[in-house]
Design a protein around this nucleic acid. Structure first.
Lengths: 341, 341
DNA sequence: GTGAGCGTTTAAACCGGTTTAAACACTCAG
DNA sequence: CTGAGTGTTTAAACCGGTTTAAACGCTCAC
């Protein structure tokens, strides 16, 4: 059988050198005559040899893989537009470098720390992405304890030893609110995400502050959970207010689309009776009726940046600087309109 | 530092036996006195020893991981409700077994075979899930050539050496069509997915056959691509027909939701002027307006079943039987209504 | 002619498990 | 008392790389 994969010993024999020499040649270590290096590389090429990841993993104690732990329940995760694009971005960096992405889904309510512990103890990954960052996120301390390198997606509130890749959600939210103000709206409500999340509070804060800058106060802020069901509930409560809002800013598209549905069900027309804005610019945003005014970020770029940053932080010697991504942009569509008096 | 992880040698020393004995005890191999086994396990426990995945990987030539290659472009992938839930299902099986899931995203248009080659040559996985199965799927031959075990999601048309985990899409589609017929619809159109995919053609065929059984022919079948943009386009074409349909059956929810949007934009009311049905029961289906009549499958169960089947096929000696999952169920909501004459 | 110095190469240990063949201890039959 | 047989244990090879310390061959100065 020529089915057997060649090993470093085969290459060594063929090139007439020792295993060590082959290893040196492959890794570009100095100390080998360049003629020898050429001979070794040629031999490796002829045999079609590629070093075994497993053997390398064992001897250098690296996994050559990064990990992503997603802590959500499947239903919620199911239609999140962020992760697939983020993952695609990560992959686009890892693939050419021969690294892999290990995914771990922890069902909400289970022990999330166990997920990271397992990933570490099994030696599956050299570092992880910390997504859905929370205030006082306990995972930061956990990872320090585990000695696992990480990159945080968005900047944690406390101090953190890990580099952060940030995409400021505030300019987008500010733009949404200013857009609504320009359209004449004054009674504006907000449907927020769970306040535990950094990105959720960033959006709510920007919302409130922008209104305040215009001398206004929010009609109401409903705290919800980023799900369609939650968006529906929150919208119903808002529309049942004695003085209902003329515009609602949602912290994501799913809640916003569900909100449009709830408004229609309540007999209102969007945008004539109620303006609605979302956040994410998910695929459906453009194609629902009316098309959703929203804020567009670039999760793919988020993925590529986070991956390169994490790799730097693992390989590099010194500290890696935080990276600030270009902020999300307002996308105006049909779901927001001039306030009709 | 007690920071160092204990190795099998530490356990052996502590239990007063050889490395080999510890290995035997751990793997439940016969030939060791039960008293010795107890002593060894106790020592392992006291030291908190867990065998190194990397070392095991190297010596037994297994990765203890399964792979999923997703071949879609990020935008399309972005709001697919199937994968996240499927992956969660897979994880729920892998995690307790100490296995991991390696993800690989191949951007559409790139060399998809390279993705599988890389996963194999790097020895990252012991088997893969073959999703989005196509007719005459070239990946089957590729995997045979690579010698990589696999499980196909849905049954391939040609013969395949791999076990298949199937979820019959036809009963659900049949139920949708019969539902529409009962409501009095006779001019029914279909927006199909790309005919290259097995699940897309299964749905179209069931659609056509059910109509035929009622002595009818489809008004039109638009071939689309499962995206919201595609759904919008197809819907516009259908509504522009000289005799437009009174009901449209879409091959997935995204196209259906986009279709509702397109209908509204064309001045039609759903379901009064047009009934619409989807497929998937994605999260938003229940919360758009009108709520979408659709077909509900169980992608989480799909994941658990596929994972157990693949593991069996890898570990097991004999051939593994195909598994048939319970078919998807019709969910009737507000987007379909009695035909008003 | 000897040895210091340098560039090149190698043998061998190592990573942490698994596995095989041999050694060991013990009982029991001949 | 010997030797076969059984059950238990171990030493050592192995997986396929990396890494370290030592050896080698050579030039050159003293």
């Amino acid at each position: 059988m020529s089915k057997e994969r060649p090993t470093i010993a085969d290459v060594a024999t063929r090139a007439g050198v020792s295993k060590g020499a082959v290893s040196f040649a492959l890794n570009g270590r100095p100390g080998l005559a360049s003629a020898t290096v050429d001979r070794i590389l040629a031999a490796a090429d002829e045999l079609g040899w590629r070093p075994s990841n497993r053997a390398r993993s064992l001897s250098v104690s690296k996994a050559f893989a990064l990990g992503l732990v997603i802590t959500r329940d499947p239903a919620v995760l199911s239609s999140d537009p962020f992760f697939p694009a983020f993952i695609a971005g990560v992959e686009s960096v890892l693939a050419p470098r021969g690294q892999a992405l290990v995914l771990q889904v922890v069902t909400a309510g289970e022990d999330e720390a166990a997920g990271y512990r397992r990933l570490t103890q099994d030696g599956r990954v050299d570092g992880v992405f910390l997504s859905d960052l929370r205030h006082e996120d306990p995972r930061i301390e956990l990872l320090v304890e585990l000695g696992l390198p990480a990159v945080t997606l968005n900047r944690p509130v406390g101090s953190s030893p890990f580099p952060a890749v940030c995409l400021d959600d505030r300019p987008g939210t500010v733009a949404v609110v200013e857009h609504l103000l320009q359209l004449g709206h004054r009674r504006i409500a907000h449907v927020a995400g769970p306040p535990a999340f950094v990105h959720a509070t960033a959006r709510s804060q920007a919302f409130t502050e922008t209104l305040a800058a215009a001398g206004l106060e929010p009609i109401a802020v409903e705290v919800s959970d980023f799900t369609a069901a939650g968006g529906t509930e929150a919208t119903r409560r808002l529309l049942a207010l004695p003085e209902p809002p003329t515009a609602i800013v949602y912290a994501n598209d799913r809640m916003a689309i569900a909100g449009i549905g709830a408004a229609h069900q309540a007999g209102l027309t969007v945008p004539d009776d109620l303006s609605v804005a979302g956040f994410d610019d998910s695929e459906l945003a453009e194609f629902v009726h009316p098309a959703l005014t929203t804020v567009r970020a670039d999760p793919f770029a988020f993925g590529t940046t986070a991956a390169t940053t994490l790799i730097q932080s693992i390989d590099g010697d010194g500290d890696v600087a935080d990276v600030e991504l270009p902020p999300a942009q307002l996308v105006v569509r049909g779901s927001t309109a001039l306030l009709e008096e």
